[in-house]
Nucleic acid binder design. Structure first.
Lengths: 296, 296
DNA sequence: CGGATGGTTTTAGAGTTGCTTCATGCTGGA
DNA sequence: TCCAGCATGAAGCAACTCTAAAACCATCCG
């Protein structure tokens, strides 16, 4: 009888391309994975890996087995999920990540409610940008991630994941006190072409998006400054160094003087929860989605 | 992660009705099965078995899990089978049973040929009546069984098994030397109504069939004698104690005096090989079927 | 050419698992 | 009430599977 752990090891090698990457995902040493695969080769009587340069390559037999393993492992997770659903009660452990703003403006209230409604569920929380959190959900290190996309750029959802909408989050422009348009009731983005801008963390999904959005109205957008936190960014705005786009979710107090102006064509981002489709029926997942939605 | 061995234990309990029966099928002690199931309960966090009289009963959660397990275990065996098929070469071990006549008239030649063509395949052979061999194939104790049915009574095939026709085997009537119809070229069964008959082993498929077949021409068939081997039965016929129906397959020398007479409406039985459908693609299974067919 | 580098396999040893045996508990029928 | 049948629990032993460390191997680069 084939062993599930071994199939999983092989599957991970196929997915992540090397023994060491697989070991990483499975949280064991490469030695363990290597030994498991050697045993799998003995059991099946077939060569599964061959050395290929510094790494390994799967043989045809291994590819065949991986195709089966994929279906088998998926069925197994579905079985677990169904079993939890049958139990009905929300218990156990849920590992959750959220992007920074949600972490402040959305998650705390949701989590308080989730804890109150389901005291036996242990939620482990961490802050993570969508670009990083979604692969972690796929590989099983996270059960759920709170992510967002912008209305002008839909988020690509990795295979095997499902998403549910949590809410929409409108963003405004924040201008320095002495900005010529500071007195306006609303402003169009292209009126701000040529202004200097302040962005958040350079390798985050937000920064990418800001660049592409400004490019639509300004061939050479000036993103002159960068700061991780909105509070810091607002200080820079107060000092007259540039504008920012500030989502309403998780907004903190703005310093005196700076002006928050709504956009004529509103920019909004949509907040989602994502999870593995095999886990869709877990009561803990359902409860977390409900809690996130009700906190808005 | 659920463990396949544990799922299999649960599945066996569901299929065979008790922990001890399951242990029997899995070739371990009841204690081992009991411990595995206890562990499975801890892992899933749900009660799976409850005591019921002297035995156990599955809970709803267990039934749910069994339904999943069925699909998972089937996929796993298919994967193994596919993997062997991919390898192509006929190696490993094949456990085969055949009904008594086939054991003598069909299997020896087939097996010699199979061994010659595939020296690396180890075939384990045993004699077993179809009524017993087919459940053994289902439960995995046998890989293949050679069985037969009669043209007037198709064989019911258990769920999950497949069959392939090997050959047809015509049967004649054997009459004592002094029988009034002993000189005939052929005879109709109903002409023999009222004669005494000799059958083989009382709990075999052949004896059942003989009874039902004779009843079609004789409301009160007289099955007066019983002997396990055809050679013995023929001696009884030679002694004038009754008639027998003798299949041509595996026929041994008939004693002097007794007369073999073909039937007007020939009775024939069809010989099949049966195997688990999950194992259908195993090269060893294919090779064995081929060898059986070519030996006819 | 030769050492540094990134990756895999091998080996030895420790901890864990899972089996068997034996003992115990529980239920239903003689 | 006792016995037979079935399930569970504890102790001991064998097998497994992990980690750590070292060996091995192909590539890259000075």
């Amino acid at each position: 009888m084939l062993d599930l752990e071994r199939l999983r090891a092989l599957h991970s090698v196929a997915t992540y391309g090397s023994v060491s990457a697989a070991a990483d995902v499975l949280h064991v040493t490469t030695s363990a994975v290597s030994q498991q695969l050697a045993k799998l080769e003995r059991e099946t009587g077939q060569k599964l890996l061959e050395r290929n340069g510094r790494g390994v390559r799967l043989t045809d037999a291994a590819e065949l087995l991986v195709a089966h393993a994929e279906r088998i492992l998926s069925l197994v997770e579905q079985a677990q999920s169904d079993l939890e659903a049958h139990r009905g009660s929300v218990v156990g452990q849920l590992t959750l990540a959220a992007f920074p703003t949600a972490m402040r403006g959305l998650v705390p209230a949701s989590l308080r409610r989730l804890n109150a409604d389901h005291p036996d569920l242990r939620v482990l929380l961490r802050e993570e940008d969508p670009l990083r959190s979604m692969p972690l959900v796929s590989r099983g290190d996270l059960d759920m991630a709170v992510v967002q996309d912008w209305n002008n750029e839909p988020l690509p959802l990795p295979d095997g994941l499902q998403k549910g909408v949590i809410c929409d989050d409108v963003a405004d422009v924040v201008l320095p006190p002495d900005h010529p348009l500071a007195g306006r009731d609303e402003v169009a983005l292209k009126e701000l072409a040529g202004d200097p801008w302040i962005s958040s963390s350079p390798d985050s999904i937000c920064c990418d998006w800001l660049m592409r959005t400004l490019r639509a109205v300004d061939s050479e957008p000036r993103i002159d400054h960068q700061a991780y936190e909105f509070a810091t960014q607002l200080s820079l705005v107060a000092a007259g160094l540039g504008n920012i786009i500030l989502p309403r979710l998780g907004r903190c107090d703005v310093p005196p003087g700076v002006v928050v102006v709504p956009l004529k064509e509103p920019l909004s981002r949509r907040v989602y929860a994502v999870w593995r489709e095999e886990a869709a029926r877990r009561p803990a997942i359902r409860a977390a989605v409900t809690a996130l939605r009700s906190a808005v």
